[in-house]
Simulated assay, not measured.
Amino acid sequence: MATHPLWSDDYWLLLLQLYLKKPEGMKALYSRALVDLSLELHIPPKNLYEQQFKLRHRDTPIIELIWDTYAGNPRKLNKDAKKLRSMEGFGQPKKFYDGVQVKETFERDFSPMADYPDLKPIMLVMILDLYFRLTPITMAEETPEVQDLAKLMKIKPQLVVEVMDVFQFCDPYLNRDDLMISSLLLPCREIWDRYGNDNPEKLSSFAAQLKEYFR
């Protein structure tokens, strides 16, 4: 994968700090710590995940220097990482013509939804994956799979069911023609358009990876 345009060699310091966190080593693609760093740097998790391989292999002189300087000195690492974060312009993405900030899809996906702050779009992805595993009659609060997913995401089963009900309006096979008035309809439709018509195995694989974020 090509290096992201917002990547800076200064960020090797932060990536090493993440790598050395217990348990030391490569962090999962959607682990919360890696996603949090992605949001901080405005660089997608996949790019940082790939950079971890370079860090582990120490395949450039600058990476080797960073290892030699900081790996055995966590106090210096934490101090310099804190200093880097305090520098003017840190974490500020490039801007387009009129100063509108760049906000990538992944940032929106991991951000709370305006009308439902307990939900993030990635949670809709996980609910959609479960939606395809159930039938309408089992999309209920007492269904064990619904309860398990709600517990994992730290939300109420009722909210999972509410999202599934909205997905039924997005599902062309159900032909729901009754009226739906919900601020969830637009974000659910967007997630359905992105994943609902694709290979269900891809959705299932993605949802399985996203579980790391909630652990």
Rank of each mutant, 00 (worst) to 15 (best):
25 G>A: 02
25 G>W: 02
192 W>Q: 12
130 L>H: 07
154 K>N: 09
93 P>F: 00
183 S>I: 04
26 M>C: 08
178 D>M: 01
126 M>F: 02
170 C>T: 09
32 R>F: 04
112 P>I: 06
68 D>E: 14
151 K>C: 02
58 R>K: 13
72 G>S: 02
11 Y>S: 00
53 F>Q: 13
120 K>D: 08
116 Y>R: 10
165 D>I: 03
42 H>K: 09
54 K>Y: 05
118 D>A: 15
3 T>R: 14
197 N>D: 08
41 L>G: 00
125 V>K: 12
211 K>C: 03
65 L>C: 04
105 T>K: 15
112 P>D: 07
141 E>N: 12
110 F>I: 08
137 I>Y: 09
119 L>D: 12
46 K>E: 14
121 P>V: 08
1 M>C: 08
31 S>T: 06
198 D>Q: 15
157 P>V: 11
189 R>S: 15
5 P>A: 02
55 L>P: 02
80 D>W: 02
100 V>L: 13
121 P>D: 09
9 D>P: 01
31 S>K: 06
8 S>W: 00
113 M>Y: 11
181 I>R: 14
39 L>S: 07
181 I>M: 12
192 W>C: 09
195 Y>T: 06
61 P>L: 06
68 D>A: 15
7 W>V: 04
59 D>T: 07
12 W>S: 00
213 Y>G: 04
41 L>M: 01
121 P>S: 07
171 D>K: 13
17 Q>T: 05
71 A>P: 01
12 W>F: 01
157 P>R: 12
130 L>C: 06
18 L>Q: 12
50 E>R: 13
109 D>H: 12
206 F>P: 03
77 L>C: 05
108 R>E: 11
124 L>W: 11
39 L>H: 07
23 P>S: 05
44 P>F: 00
214 F>G: 04
167 F>I: 11
125 V>S: 05
41 L>Q: 02
131 Y>A: 10
5 P>E: 05
143 T>S: 12
151 K>V: 03
120 K>E: 15
66 I>D: 00
206 F>C: 05
27 K>A: 01
134 L>A: 10
34 L>I: 04
85 R>G: 00
203 L>K: 12
142 E>L: 10
39 L>K: 14
